Amino acid sequence: MARVSQEHLDARRRQILEGAARCFARSGFHGTSMQDVLKEVGLSTGAVYRYFSGKEDIIAAITGEAFASIRTTFEEATRTTPPPTPDVLLSRVLGGLFEGAVHGLERRTVASLIVQVWSETLRDERLATLLEEGYAAMRTVWGELVEAYRAAGILPEGVPDEHVARTMIATAHGFIVQEALFGDVRREVPENGLRGLMSMEPQKAS
Score class of each variant (00 low, 15 high):
V102Y: 04
E188V: 13
G183Q: 06
L113D: 02
Y149Q: 11
I169N: 09
H173C: 06
R13P: 02
K39V: 08
A21P: 05
L105A: 08
G174Y: 01
E132P: 01
A136W: 11
P84A: 10
T78I: 01
R123W: 08
L194H: 09
E106G: 05
S112T: 15
E191F: 05
G95E: 12
G19T: 11
G31E: 08
E147F: 15
F67S: 05
I114A: 02
P83Y: 04
F98R: 09
L197A: 09
Y51D: 06
I176A: 02
N192C: 15
R126L: 01
G143M: 04
R12L: 12
L9W: 06
R12S: 15
T32M: 02
V164I: 03
D184H: 13
D10E: 09
A25N: 04
H30V: 14
S206W: 13
A151W: 03
L43G: 07
R139E: 11
G153R: 00
V141Q: 07
R26I: 03
G42E: 05
P84V: 07
G193T: 12
A152Q: 11
F182M: 13
E40D: 00
E179D: 04
F182H: 06
P83E: 08
E147L: 13
S27Y: 03
R123T: 12
M198Q: 06
Q6S: 07
E157G: 01
E76L: 09
E157T: 10
E40S: 01
A66I: 09
H163D: 15
E120S: 02
E106R: 00
A165G: 12
P156F: 14
L43A: 10
G143E: 02
M200D: 00
R166A: 14
